[in-house]
Each structure stands twice: as C-alpha cells, then as structure tokens.
C-alpha cells in the first residue's frame, strides 16, 4: 500500500477553500455594485420615478454638498451620540432592574404582570407623551432609545440571573456569604455573557427609538433629515440619510460584536 500524498491533498484542500472564499466575495461585490449601477440607470432611463427614488449620483452630490457645509457631520454626531447613550442606558438600567428583581423574589412576583404588559407594548407609541413630559430635546430622544430596550433587557438578564447553577450559591453560602456577596461573586459574572449579548440586541433597538424620537421632535439628527426630506419631497435627502444610517448602524453593531469577542475570550 502506498502512502497517500498528504501534503498534496492538504494543498488541494486549502486551494478549494480559497476558491470558495473568492467566489463568495465576487458575488457580494457583484450584488453591491449592480444594485447601485442598476439604480442609477433605472433612474436616468425613467424606469423608476427619479423624483421619488432619486439616484446614486444625486445622493453622492448631496453628500458632498452636506459634507462641505458641515451639516451632515453635525447630524450624524447628534444621532450617534443619542443612540450610544440610549443603548448604554437601556442595558445598564435593565441590568439594574434585573438585579432588584433577583434580590427580592416577592417584588419580582408582584411586578411580573406589569413587565409582561410593558414588554408587549410598542414603546415608540409612548413617544409623544415623552416629548410632552420631557420636552422636544435630546433628553427625550435618549429616553426613547432607552425605553425601547430596557424592559426586554430586564427580562432577559433576570432570566439569566435565575438560571445560574444553584450549586455555585451553595458553595458560597457554606463559606458564610451574604446575598450581595453571592450576587457579586456568582450571579453577575455568570450572566456577563448574556449582558454583553443584550448589548448587541440593544444597539439595534436604540436606533429604532432614536430615529422615531427624531421623527417626532423634528429638530436635528438623521431621523430629522428623513422626515424633513419627506415633507419637502426631497427624496435624495431621505436616501442619503438611510445610507448613512445603514453604515453607522452596521459599524456600531460590529464594534459591539468585537467588544463581545474580546470580553468573552478573557473569561
């Protein structure tokens, strides 16, 4: 029996992997570019109404113009700040609420139906009330971003607190630990991966809250650009805002994912 040429086979296997990767990349680039090329041509040849659907070149020109006068950067800055504040506050507040519920089983039983109602309720519907109560400013928009994510965070993190293996607590109780020591030593660190993953979900949710909040206050930010463009029938502005939102939402999500990988690996 002859030994198989392992080196050669491995080489072939690597080559196969590379070929597949190149194929995937090729189609990704193809879809991306043909989307914009098709959009441009469809608009120029009036297959679609250029007034409603604009075109990549018009969006690009507007992008240059808004970049030069600095208004785009200002709006991006506002929206991104609001979103970051919103999702951080949502995650922190949700975790804090979960800790309170864990601390008092009686309280968690009492609050259970209210949490279910709040969770089922579409939070953006509370927008107008928030704005009337807090004022049409950044605070109410951040509050929107927070509100959208806080209840679901509470529920998910509380569930994870409850699912921590009780034997870890047994180990601690035998050492004479109090409930707060148990929380610090076992409950919180064991739920850390869950908290990080809610962070990822909350990035997306905070964008929803913030954009809706900006629709309603109609003063500044990318959401405002969309609603303003819609009102003056300038859909080039709407598309520009949408593309910018797509880019920044993706970037933020990727950053949180990177953070997640870093933190979980250190476990």
């Amino acid at each position: 029996m002859t030994n198989p040429d392992l080196q050669g086979l491995h080489h072939q296997y690597l080559k196969g992997l590379k070929r597949e990767k190149r194929l995937v990349r090729f189609f990704q680039v193809l879809i991306f570019t043909s989307f914009f090329v098709l959009w441009e041509f469809a608009s120029r040849l009036h297959w679609i109404d250029p007034l409603i659907f604009s075109s990549p070149s018009k969006v690009w020109n507007l992008f240059i113009q808004k970049s030069v006068d600095g208004s785009l950067a200002a709006n991006i800055g506002i929206t991104v700040t609001e979103t970051i504040l919103g999702f951080l506050a949502g995650t922190l507040l949700g975790t804090l609420l979960a800790a309170v519920l864990w601390w008092s089983p009686l309280l968690s039983k009492i609050l259970d139906p209210f949490l279910v109602i709040l969770n089922a309720m579409p939070k953006v519907a509370l927008g107008p009330i928030l704005i009337v109560a807090i004022g049409a400013n950044m605070t109410s928009i951040v509050a929107m971003g927070t509100l959208v994510s806080v209840i679901i965070t509470t529920i998910v993190v509380y569930t994870s607190f409850k699912e921590v293996d009780p034997n870890y607590l047994k180990v601690l109780y035998v050492f004479g630990a109090t409930r707060s020591v148990c929380f610090k030593q076992a409950i919180l660190p064991a739920s850390f991966p869950t908290i990080i993953s809610t962070l990822k979900v909350n990035v997306g949710l905070a964008w929803v809250g913030v954009i809706v909040g900006e629709f309603l206050t109609s003063a500044r930010g990318l959401g405002y650009m969309i609603i303003y463009g819609f009102q003056v029938f300038d859909f080039t502005l709407v598309f520009l805002s949408l593309l910018v939102i797509a880019i920044f939402a993706t970037l933020m999500y990727q950053l949180v994912e990177l953070l997640e990988r870093k933190l979980i690996k250190n476990d």
Binding site: N167, Y168, K170, V174, G176, P189, A190, D267
Partner: peptide, 17 residues
C-alpha cells in the same frame, strides 16, 4: 458556626471566570 463547616459537591463547582 458556619465557618467551621466545609462542603464538597458532586462536581467541583470551581468558578470558571
């Protein structure tokens, strides 16, 4: 006299973090 007692469980329950 809680501190006078040690307890070993079926599994080690070392804290992984």
């Amino acid at each position: 006299s809680k501190n006078d007692i040690g307890y070993m469980l079926q599994q080690d329950y070392l804290f992984p973090w």
